[in-house]
Design a protein around this nucleic acid. Structure first.
Lengths: 210, 210
DNA sequence: GCCTGTGAAGCTATTCACAGCT
DNA sequence: AGCTGTGAATAGCTTCACAGGC
């Protein structure tokens, strides 16, 4: 028997991303200006101690009186995580999953920009999705290289994923987010992030039924 | 500066799910019957030591001569992870993301079954998606309770996610997979798994550009 | 020689707990 | 009284390294 799920362990970067989105929403929608570590913890699935530790990394600006000033915190996180220029992104595969991510990014794409999408399906080329132009896969390597794209998102079926990854790497991406249910082989110097929805579902099912 | 990404730390359950899908593919597509820990490691983004440790948990059946027998391994993993009855699943939100997960499950749903989908959009009701019937949200609690559904997948916009979660919990689900970019408040006894694509993208961007 | 199974060591990440401040 | 920042302690996870087997 497994010992009872631990919080997904996620590294700091993951949690900082979460804090960031929670804080933005809090500031924009509720007009909050300050927050305590235990509140932020509750809103992001973490503990107060964890929050304080994380915030130390970006330079803790909290006061005992009012906690953290949200504005300041967001700037500190941004400074820690973001490069001055928005990251350039390419998307391969404009199926349901690809479109879902475009929709998401149309809402919150702070410091990220999807430069181009690619699809094998000729009918999708020349079209735009959420304002992003779709090109044939044959042009991918060239466009990635010319536009200096940083990150590739792989939202194609598992069978095609490795080929797509190879082309993206040849084009010069430094990171890949693979949404297909397969583990890709990429060079050491390219960061691979795997987000397989099926695995998450299996995990959920496991913990729900045990 | 962050210390250089560590393997996502994922707990055993996550890795077992991965092994399982890798092994199935290997057996079905390539007709392999045996595999060594270092091979399985390479194919699933892990190390040989890690694989051997994980497989001990399900009952290691390896031999020095041929490694592990795939068939046996799959059965052992299944016995460890699956209940005798397939897990019953409900999906809320039949947008791009919801449909993506239905497509996925149409391919590999071993021991999982999506019983019903729900959507606010009246035009989607009465339709089926990948063979799954779509109902209005008003019927959700009732259907979840009557069908004894184990797990809910939340693929609705962030604003609606908490309401949907509340209804699902009232209906009696024991686990929730939330795909919306928000952290939900659920009772202790319900397992919450958060899979926010935006967070993964942010992580990828961070490691690609640092 | 090369593999598995596994105790022991080594790391990382998380939590505790408290000094210092308001 | 209640909060932050942080050293120290703990818990959890991963790798090492080697005995035992083919």
């Amino acid at each position: 028997m497994v010992k009872g799920q631990k919080r997904p362990a996620g590294c700091i970067v993951e949690r900082l991303s979460i804090y960031r989105s929670v804080l933005s929403r809090l500031m924009d929608n509720k007009g909050r200006t300050h927050i305590y570590s235990h509140e932020l913890g509750a809103l992001s699935g973490s503990t107060s101690a964890q929050v304080r530790r994380d915030l130390m990394v970006v330079g803790g600006y909290g006061t005992a009186a009012h906690g953290y000033e949200i504005q300041l915190l967001l700037e500190a996180i941004k400074k820690y995580m973001d490069k001055p220029e928005p990251a350039k992104i390419a998307l391969a595969g404009v199926g349901n999953l690809g479109r879902a991510i475009l929709t998401y990014l149309a809402g919150d794409a702070t410091n990220m920009k999807v430069i181009a999408a690619f699809d094998k399906d000729g009918r999708k080329n020349r079209r735009t999705f959420e304002g992003v132009q779709c090109y044939p896969v044959e042009k991918m390597e060239e466009i990635i290289r010319n536009e200096n794209i940083d990150v590739g998102i792989i939202a194609v079926p598992a069978e095609a994923a490795q080929d797509i990854a190879n082309i993206m790497v040849k084009g010069g991406v430094k990171g890949l987010l693979c949404l297909a249910p397969i583990f890709l082989d990429v060079p050491e110097n390219v960061h691979l992030e795997v987000a397989d929805l099926g695995i998450f579902l299996r995990k959920t099912v496991f913990f729900a039924t045990h």
